[in-house]
Design a binder for these strands. Sequence first.
DNA 1: ACCTATCGGTTGACATGTCAATGATGCTAA
DNA 2: TTAGCATCATTGACATGTCAACCGATAGGT
Lengths: 163, 163
Amino acid sequence: MTEATPVRRAGRQLPTADELRIWRDFIETTAALGSRLESRLQSDSSLSTGDYAVLLALSEAEGQAMRSSELAAHIGWERSRLSHHLGRMERRGLIRRQECPTVPRGAEVLLTAAGAEAFGGATFPHLRAIRELFVDALTPDQLVAAGEIAAALRTRLDVLRRE
Amino acid sequence: MTEATPVRRAGRQLPTADELRIWRDFIETTAALGSRLESRLQSDSSLSTGDYAVLLALSEAEGQAMRSSELAAHIGWERSRLSHHLGRMERRGLIRRQECPTVPRGAEVLLTAAGAEAFGGATFPHLRAIRELFVDALTPDQLVAAGEIAAALRTRLDVLRRE
DNA sequence: ACCTATCGGTTGACATGTCAATGATGCTAA
DNA sequence: TTAGCATCATTGACATGTCAACCGATAGGT
């Protein structure tokens, strides 16, 4: 970081000690943030962040229903993961699955009344937690910077996707 | 973010749409970054990041050994998680456990030759991946900002620890 | 000495995640 | 027509994580 010369920067293959320290702080803190949010959500509503993502997507979908594959793409999950998760959510009565009327071998995922109710109850505390643990922790400048950092990292991930 | 008046900022209980968008970008991208690193490490060395954390700590420990509880504290894991993980690593021959000579009911965790070898082989590609996916993705300013953001979030998490 | 609380560590039950294999169904080309 | 192939979704095997219960040993207070 205190590295000013582009030449040396380009020549290095490994991170410096400073860079590594930042990396560790960054990845560990964001992981801890995620799990704190997870446990807040759990104690406020008995939902996991996975449940929440599914319920959010269904709530916003037309007819509060979506085909399984679309849902997976929408929230960025593998189909297998979604299928397992839906099985658990179905057992708890949060969603229902039925054959899709339009797509031959498709499965339609429907929000149940219980699911809508659980989602409704979870939303406010969850958003408040996001505000307390993330938004309020940062200055406005830092918040902007966080968005830019996320965008830069995402771009990099996408560029290197197939390697 | 475009919120300039402290009064309005203080009065809000929930994040704005902008803030929420940044939150989602941030948390999802950092999660994706973590899992990309995980799969890189896996394919380069057949180690998980958990394995790596354990092996790193043991490598740096005197005598390449540590008591189980110390190790857990050092890498920030619950004892139960560590115990399960050590069981799996022991089955793969990466570490060994024996009664601790100094602490009565303590277990000493030792790095095996195979563990040291696996760690040695994993280090270089892992650090290179951190550089490619994180350090090189950011400008020097962004890297500094990432460190500051992590520190701010960590402070907040610590302040709210027992709630 | 003896009851009890605590400590270090393990275990079991379960939630979650990945990967590869499986079924079931439609599409396409010989 | 039919053999091969892609697609949608599920399943099973397994790795990982949390939580609570447990075991054995030790330290104190009475």
